[in-house]
Simulated assay, not measured.
Amino acid sequence: MSFQPTRRTGLNRTVLLSPGAPWHGAPAGRALGAASPLDDGQWLIALERLVSSLVEPTEQDRSARPDWSEDDWARWAQLERIVLCGGVLAGGRGDLVRSLFRAPGELGLPPVAVEVDPDPLSAPLRGLTAWPPVGAPTLVLDLGHTAVKAAVSTAVGQLGPVTAVRVPWTPFDLSTWPDPPTLLAVVRQAATHALAHEDLPSDAAPAEARVAIGNYVVDGRLDEDQTWGTLARSGEPADELLSAELGLPVRLLVNDGQAAALGRAGQRHTAVISIGTSLGVGFPPSSVPTPRTPPGLG
């Protein structure tokens, strides 16, 4: 897993440019995320503009992201497909994308295929099962800005009943964001519900946990912001905090967009964009990993 999205390489601050459009000059995270003020037609055009600005940027697009290097632009230029997931794509807007983004390059559409994951809400959870491949019961969690989702997986791409616990704060009101102990308590609640709904024998309890999070993560460390990044303020690594709260070792902690991309390992020239409260992004690992020996059997 070479690519790890950061605040610099992420898409939330990508400026969408189209003079006269209601979203001209707006950052992509605000124009396309869950709090977008755009109607469906405007939203679709803004999405099209985001994709075009990534794979065929104008000089103005490049100037609007002076923090990107040539390597950053080259990563997007080689794409043949973009897969969308996240809560915003789980309803009518997912259906709109499926119906309209059919023919790359035609009718002004971007020269790449744009598709929606078959189950956009659970894509990060499923991705967590794939890289490395799940070889024993594993607890997977997706820590979002609206809900914390959890499930138990016993095979790659397979999830038991998914539990979603609504977060006790207002996603876009940072003044309501709680302290780290409250965040961890919500995670524990979701995990407890998922384990209670999974019919596993007592000797097959999950041996580990894997976590997708709506925050940038580099080498297991959170990039601090005013949301999930506040876990970093405790001074302890986030995976250790989560491990202590869950009573399980957290073997993987990644951004939600990158988690979804893990489920597409080996798919070249592909990117995954998660559209929820904000935008997550990931690129699938270049190769399919070798199945791992389950804990205790090696």
Rank of each mutant, 00 (worst) to 15 (best):
W73Q: 08
P66H: 06
L79F: 09
A64K: 06
S69R: 10
S63Y: 12
A74H: 08
P66T: 03
S63E: 15
D95N: 12
R65M: 13
W76K: 01
W76F: 14
L96R: 14
S63A: 15
G87C: 05
S63P: 00
A77Q: 14
L79T: 03
E70S: 13
L84V: 04
L96S: 04
R81N: 09
D67K: 09
I82G: 06
G87I: 02
G91K: 09
W76S: 00
P66E: 02
C85I: 06
G91Q: 10
E80N: 12
R81I: 03
A64W: 08
L79M: 09
A74M: 03
W68C: 09
E80L: 04
P66Y: 03
C85G: 02
R62N: 03
W76T: 01
V88E: 12
V88Q: 08
A77K: 14
D67Q: 14
D71P: 03
L89A: 08
G91H: 11
C85N: 01
L79N: 07
Q78K: 12
D72M: 06
D72C: 05
V83C: 05
R93V: 05
G92Y: 06
W68R: 10
R93E: 04
V83F: 00
D67M: 12
C85V: 05
G94L: 11
L96M: 13
G92A: 13
G94T: 07
V88G: 10
L96P: 00
D95L: 15
A90V: 06
